[in-house]
């Protein structure tokens, strides 16, 4: 079957999709967006977390056909998503994608945007992404994309979360490397920087 939906502001189309394919598979294998990760494919690890019409979901548990006509934000689009949110006054989850939309012009930027070295350094990052690097919250990095999407959504609805709030919001995202301490540090750091910026 054919599936059409919007990813990071760009209209995307996939053909010959097998009906049992997940949104995760289509993103990774058909749209060249492997940032969302395939750690468990059973909704237990959160590494495939994306925003579906603004709502954080496990993309491994969304049938590709269910995404038809909907808005998806992945880790690849997170920096622009956060930037748009900041520019448009921090719209609530759900509204950012489908209501206002990202113009095609804007949307193309995230892919076309060059970085000045092969580390990707110099590209614009969202506050949560920068905080994960700065706090040492990234080791192998396989859980990182899902955690970033979840943490970004937490800070969107709760500007100054308590530690218990952070733990609850990220309790669907497994990490095997860090013991989570530096992930907590990163979210605290992002929240603090967000607070300073306001």
């Amino acid at each position: 079957m054919r599936v059409n939906f919007t990813v990071n502001g760009r209209q995307q189309e996939a053909d010959d999709v097998w009906e049992g394919e997940s949104l995760l598979y289509v993103l990774r294998e058909r749209m060249g967006l492997p940032g969302s990760k395939n750690a468990c494919e059973q909704g237990e690890c959160g590494s495939c977390t994306v925003r579906l019409d603004g709502v954080p979901v496990c993309s491994c548990l969304v049938a590709a056909g269910q995404a038809e006509g909907r808005e998806v934000v992945t880790v690849e689009g997170l920096a622009d998503f956060a930037k748009q949110r900041a520019e448009h006054g921090g719209c609530a989850s759900g509204a950012c994608g489908s209501e206002q939309g990202t113009s095609l012009q804007d949307a193309k930027q995230w892919q076309a945007k060059g970085t000045d070295s092969q580390t990707g350094e110099g590209g614009e990052l969202s506050p949560v992404q920068q905080a994960f690097i700065d706090a040492g919250a990234v080791q192998c990095g396989f859980c990182t994309p899902g955690l970033l999407v979840a943490a970004d959504e937490l800070l969107e609805r709760n500007e100054s979360p308590s530690d218990a709030d952070i733990r609850e919001a990220l309790s669907g995202n497994l990490c095997r490397c860090t013991g989570y301490e530096k992930i907590l540090d990163a979210v605290r750091l992002a929240a603090a920087r967000q607070g300073e910026a306001v």
Partner: peptide, 26 residues
Amino acid sequence: PIAGGTDVMVEINFDHRRPEYLLDLN
């Protein structure tokens, strides 16, 4: 029927189930 997909998709991903039809209720 598939709505949230949180049961059905696990079964499909792990090859535990191959329904003839998936009925999307979203």
